[in-house]
Amino acid sequence: MTTLKIKALVLTGYGLNCDIETAYALELAGAIADRVHINAIIDGSVSLDDYKILVFGGGFSWGDDHGAGVIQAVRMKHNIGSRLTRFVENGNLVIGICNGFQTIVNLGLLPGFDNDYQNRSVALTYNDCGNFRDDWVTLAINSDSPCVFTKNLTTIELPVRHGEGKFVADEKIISRLIDNQQVACQYAIPDGTPADKKFPYNPNGSMLDIAGICDPSGRVFGLMPHPEAFNHFTNHPDWSCLKEKIKRGELDAESLPVTGIRIFENAVNFISSSSG
C-alpha cells in the first residue's frame, strides 16, 4: 500500500494565496497535491474522503477583515463543519499555515482538547510591533510533542509574514497545552534557546514564544511561519554565504539548513507508515 501516492488537498480561493508553492512543497515531499477551491468542497464536486492531508494555507482570506481567518472559519464551519471534524477523526492529517493556522484555531480544530474540535479557546491576534512583518525566524522544536509534522526536528529556520500572529490564550489553556506537549514549536534565538519574547526573534509577542501548536493526537498542526516558502536551498537568507563556505571547504554540503519540505515529508511518511 505504501507504494500508493498519498493525496493532499490545498485550499484555494477567497484571497488565499500560498496554494501553488504549498502544493509544490507537498509534491517534493512525495505527495500528490491538488489545489481545490473552497466552494468546490462545499458544493460537493470535490470530496475530502479522497484525501489524507488537508492544508489550510497562507493568504488573506476575505482580506482578513474582522480578524484573520475568521470569515473563512465561519464559512467552512457552517457549510462543511461536520465533514471537517470527520476528516480529523478518521485519522487524517490537517496543517494550518499562517492564515490557515488562524482559520483552524477559529474553527476550533485546535487545540482540540478531549477530542472537541469545535471549541475556540486560543487566538492569534495583532503583533505587538503593531505592523505586518516579513522576516526569518528560528524555531525550537519540542521533541516531546506528539506533533507528526515536526518529528525528528530540533530547530528549523522559516520565514514569517503576518500582522496577526501573536498567540494568546488564558493561563489554564496555556498550561494545559504545555502539559499535553501540544506546544510543537517556539520562536528562538539563532542558537535554539527560547526567544523569551525578545523582538525580532519572537516577531509578534506570542505568549511563551509559541509559534505553532498541535492537537493531542499530533495529527492537527498549526503554525505561523511558512515551511512551504523554504522549498529550496536558495530561499535561505544566508545561502550565498553558505555557498561560499562550501566552495572553500569550510562547510560540507550535507550540513546545510533543513528546509521546510521536511515538515511535509513527515506528514507523508506518517500516512504511508500508518496505511502501510
Binding site: 509544490y24 505586518f132 512583518r133 516579513d134 520565514p159 509574514r161 516558502a229 530561499n235
Partner: peptide
Amino acid sequence: RQYDHEVQGG
C-alpha cells in the same frame, strides 16, 4: 520589512 517578499516561495 512591512512588505511580504517571500510569498510564492521563490
